Computed example of a mutant assay.
Amino acid sequence: MTRPATPSWLRQQERSNLAILRLMVWISLTFGRAIGRVVLYGITAYYVLFAPRARHFSREYLHRALGRWAEWSDGFRHVFSFASTIHDRIYLLNDRFDLFDIEVIGADPVHELAAAQTGAVLIGAHLGSFEVLRAVGRGRAGLKVAMLMYEENARKINATLEAINPAATQDIISLGRMESMLEARDKLDQGYLVGILADRSLSDDPTVDCEFLGEMAPFPVGPFRLAAMLRRPVFFMTGLYLGGNHYRIHFEALADFTDTPRSERDAAIRAAQQHYADRLSHYCRLAPYNWFNFFDFWQKK
């Protein structure tokens, strides 16, 4: 187990994410989705041309996911997919489900836990759109979703989105506070699905190396330790962007810490992390332009 230096994704402070988000808010509300998607091509070209570090790390990831040399067009598709999910977030937050074709796979066990007021932990990644799940949850009775986020990112995103739909901020739990786990437990006791992304860490988060896309890479322990302490079933979740207005949400059972003895917890967490990395590898290969990695994830530099 290691404690890495401040990761490059945090040093970059999600610059591209927030910049694209703010611009897309204005374009989307002013001109609508069709015009906004035209503008996305210009925004994507700008980032591909003038963000050389992001372009380099995008190509390194795509080489692994595609199993071949990544061309310039692959990098463009990667950034365009990223921008598209951010653009669509504006409409999803405003319950404009009529604009989208959303398919859901493997949700029956999750619905059963929600209906029984048991709740479950959803562990995802920066893969596709987590917002599409939260949006679908708001539109379906009995499926409520709360999101655990790093406090600084939650503050920035909430500040940007509050002008669009203030209700969208109410189901976000900020990480890094003593009350975070208690708030998550309370949500679970109310039948919520509590989601957290587990493919990035803060500087003081312990990590372990897992095999991912054919090579060892560091993954944070915190999300899995939290799930184990909450003693809940854990599902891998991703909302893949398939182009146009199409999304496909996948749920897969990942682990169940409900009855895990304390003496076996560390081994169960380690097994769950590798299972998570395996499923993330699978979906990165299935939909390679969906994992929004624009930094040195394998820490080779």
Rank of each mutant, 00 (worst) to 15 (best):
I157N: 03
N158P: 04
H126P: 07
A120I: 09
Q117C: 11
V136T: 10
A135F: 02
R155L: 12
N158F: 05
Y150P: 08
I157Q: 12
A116W: 12
E151K: 12
R155F: 08
Q117A: 13
R140I: 14
G139M: 09
I123A: 05
I157W: 07
E151H: 13
Y150T: 01
R155K: 13
L143Y: 09
F130M: 03
I157S: 02
A146I: 03
K156P: 03
A135P: 06
I157T: 09
A159F: 07
T118W: 01
F130V: 02
I123Y: 00
A120N: 06
V145P: 01
A125Q: 03
N158L: 14
L148P: 08
A135Y: 03
N158Y: 02
M147N: 04
G128L: 01
T118Y: 00
L148A: 13
L122G: 07
L148H: 09
R134A: 05
E152Y: 06
T118V: 09
G128A: 06
A159E: 08
G139A: 15
A146M: 04
R155V: 03
E152H: 15
E151Q: 14
K144R: 14
V132F: 12
A120G: 08
G128D: 07
A116E: 11
Y150N: 12
G119I: 08
M147G: 01
V136C: 11
G119E: 11
N158S: 15
K144V: 05
L122M: 13
I157L: 14
G139L: 13
L127H: 09
G139P: 00
Q117R: 14
V136L: 12
V136I: 12
Q117L: 11
R140V: 14
A159D: 13
G137E: 02
A125Y: 10
L127D: 02
A146P: 05
F130Q: 02
T118R: 10
H126W: 10
A125L: 12
L127C: 11
A120S: 11
G137M: 10
K144A: 10
G137L: 04
E131T: 14
I157C: 07
L133N: 02
R140L: 12
A159I: 11
L127Y: 09
Q117Y: 04
A135S: 15
Y150R: 13
R155Y: 12
M147C: 12
R138N: 09
E152K: 15
E151G: 14
